[in-house]
């Protein structure tokens, strides 16, 4: 018993040092050396291309309505994935109806992704279809022909992995940065 206790204590220290310090620190070193951009959060001068932002008003492509329910923690840090509504929740139904109303007022045809919140509440992406649905409204607001917007979206589509795995998506931040550079 005493021997076991001593072994358990020593083993805990050994694993703490090797698995809890050495392993993550070595990983951090390699990451910072070879993949510094990704390891630091895929940051651009306008924010992280992996973290969704709230885009309001008719002049921008909108992402998913995550901003309506995401909360912040100590120091204002964004807290991902708060409690989610169940599949027969009245609150969810009215939230969806309200979001759709807002979109329609801006001239956007509501889509499945644009009226529902994501799992992370930080979803940076929309599907190409969601982007196309916003073309007419944007074209009016920015006086840019729809054909030009369509080309802009086409150029931003991330394809499927190996051509057949996962889904196509557009990262909203990159799309809006490209939009801001349109003549």
């Amino acid at each position: 018993m005493i021997l076991n206790l001593r072994r358990a204590l020593v083993a805990s220290v050994v694993f703490l040092v090797l698995c809890g310090l050495l392993y993550p620190l070595a990983g951090t070193g390699i990451s910072q050396l070879f993949f510094a951009r990704q390891a630091n959060g895929s940051l651009t001068p306008y924010g992280s291309s992996l973290i969704g932002q709230v885009w309001t008003g008719p002049g921008w492509f909108h992402g998913r309505p995550d901003g309506s329910i995401i909360t912040t923690g100590p120091g204002g840090v964004l807290v991902s994935g708060t409690n989610q509504p169940g599949p027969r929740s009245k609150a969810l139904a009215s939230q969806v109806a309200k979001t759709a109303q807002t979109l329609k007022r801006e001239g956007v045809i509501p889509t499945n992704d644009l009226v529902t919140t994501s799992g992370s509440l930080l979803d940076p992406d929309i599907s190409p279809r969601d982007a196309f649905a916003q073309m007419r409204a944007l074209s009016a607001a920015r006086s840019v022909p729809e054909s030009q917007l369509r080309r802009l979206i086409d150029g931003q589509i991330h394809g499927k992995l190996l051509g057949f795995i996962g889904r196509q998506y557009v990262d909203v931040l990159s799309l809006n940065i490209a939009l801001s550079r349109l003549k």
Binding site: D113, V115, S118, D130
Partner: peptide, 21 residues
């Protein structure tokens, strides 16, 4: 719940709480 709001078609399935990617 989304269906009951009658505002979108859900051909892509249940997207509540799911990521686009």
């Amino acid at each position: 719940a989304v269906a009951s709001a009658h505002v979108v078609s859900q051909r892509t399935g249940n997207m509540v709480g799911k990521e686009v990617r």
